[in-house]
Amino acid sequence: MMRKTLARTAIAAAALLWMIPAAEAQTATAPSTTARIVLVHGAFADGSGWRGLYDVLTARGYRVSIVQNPLTSLKEDVDATTRVIERQDGPVILVGHSWGGTVITAAGVHPKVKALVYISALAPDAGETTAQQYEGFPPASEFVIDKQSDGYGFIDLQRFKAGFAADTNDADAAFLRDSQVPINMSVFGTRLTQAAWRTRPSWAVIAKQDKAFGAGMLMHMAKRIGAKITEVPGSHAVFMTQPKAIARVIDSAAQDIGSAPSVAKVR
């Protein structure tokens, strides 16, 4: 009898030891409910400009992915963004700067996307073009685009810092100027077929010294989409120069959708 009892105990212990690693593996691979942050850059820049914000967000416990838009067409930029969204294993907060606002407006209808954050960004409606958003507002005198013979545009080299990056130091402004990614200017005439802000909660960060848009344009778009608005000092390069302020807004969005990481702190 004693032998049978000991045998059963040994079998039970062995089974338990076998189950523990399996349970640990399941816990390790189970997707977190913490929001995934997907950052979408605008025209004339690439994803490297998000580095400061990436560092702040990852320190707070977020998983962050950065889209590299080809800037060749709205469809191709939306496709690039959708590929990154598809890779996420939790609810997505989609963040767009400038032209990236148009991209997240179109791509944000993906079912994984739960919130939108516009950083000095464009926000057309379905049936509208991006170019239409400029109508009725004064031209941005410091923001001058040189259109090339192939239809792509660069920001004028002499006015780059004043128009795009006035609150950066001379070295950073020069690097941004000389590493510009041109955009196919025809994208501004493409009509959107859907607008994610109509079905997703939205937040907007507006740089008060942004010279890339006419006076009042950013505020008009943000109010029209019903965004929760935060104004900060800064140029059009606010996505680089105000990472902590932007991170606080993303924290608010994550808390609102119930997916903020437990370690996130407002700093």
Results as ranks from 00 to 15, higher is better:
Met1Val: 09
Met1Lys: 01
Met2Leu: 12
Lys4Met: 08
Lys4Pro: 09
Leu6Arg: 02
Ala13Lys: 02
Ala15Phe: 13
Ala15Ile: 15
Leu16Glu: 08
Leu16Met: 15
Trp18Asn: 10
Ala22Gln: 12
Ala22Leu: 14
Glu24Val: 15
Gln26Gly: 12
Ala28Met: 10
Thr29Glu: 12
Ala30Thr: 13
Pro31Arg: 13
Ala35Gly: 15
Ala35Tyr: 05
Ile37Met: 11
Ile37Gln: 04
Val38Asp: 06
Leu39Thr: 04
His41Phe: 06
Gly42Lys: 06
Ala43Ile: 02
Ala43Ser: 14
Ala43Trp: 01
Asp46Glu: 07
Gly47Pro: 05
Gly47Leu: 03
Gly49Asp: 08
Trp50Glu: 05
Trp50Tyr: 14
Gly52Trp: 00
Leu53Lys: 06
Val56Ser: 05
Arg60His: 08
Val64Pro: 15
Ser65His: 13
Ile66Trp: 10
Val67Met: 11
Gln68Met: 10
Pro70Phe: 05
Leu71Cys: 12
Leu71Gly: 05
Thr72Asn: 04
Thr72Leu: 06
Ser73Glu: 02
Lys75Trp: 00
Glu76Ala: 11
Glu76Arg: 11
Val78Pro: 09
Thr81Gly: 12
Thr82Lys: 04
Thr82Gln: 15
Thr82Val: 12
Arg83Ser: 10
Gly90Val: 02
Pro91Lys: 07
Pro91Ala: 09
Val92Met: 09
Ile104Phe: 11
Ala106Arg: 07
Val109Ser: 14
Val109Gln: 07
Val109Leu: 07
Val113Thr: 14
Lys114Asn: 03
Ala115His: 13
Val117Gln: 15
Leu122Thr: 11
Ala123Tyr: 03
Asp125Tyr: 06
Ala126Ile: 09
Ala126Ser: 15
Ala126Gly: 13
Gly127Pro: 10
Glu128Cys: 06
Thr129Gln: 13
Gln132Ala: 12
Pro138Tyr: 03
Ala140Val: 02
Ala140Phe: 01
Glu142Tyr: 07
Tyr152Arg: 07
Phe154His: 02
Asp156Lys: 01
Leu157Glu: 03
Leu157Met: 09
Arg159Trp: 00
Lys161Ala: 02
Lys161Ser: 02
Lys161Phe: 00
Ala162Tyr: 00
Ala166Tyr: 00
Ala166Asn: 07
Thr168Ala: 08
Thr168Arg: 00
Asn169Gln: 02
Asp172Thr: 14
Asp172Trp: 00
Phe175Ser: 09
Ile183Val: 14
Ile183Asp: 03
Met185His: 10
Val187Cys: 08
Val187His: 01
Phe188Asp: 05
Trp197Thr: 04
Thr199Ala: 13
Pro201Val: 06
Ala204Asp: 12
Ile206Gln: 11
Lys211Thr: 08
Ala212Leu: 08
Gly216Phe: 01
Met217Pro: 01
Met221Tyr: 05
Lys223Ala: 07
Arg224Phe: 07
Arg224Leu: 05
Gly226Thr: 04
Lys228Gln: 14
Lys228Arg: 15
Ile229Thr: 15
Gly234Asp: 04
Ser235Cys: 14
Ala237Met: 09
Val238Phe: 00
Val238Pro: 03
Phe239Cys: 05
Met240Arg: 10
Lys244Leu: 10
Lys244Trp: 04
Ala247Val: 08
Val249Pro: 13
Asp251Ser: 15
Gly258Glu: 13
Ser259Gly: 14
Pro261Val: 04
Val266His: 03
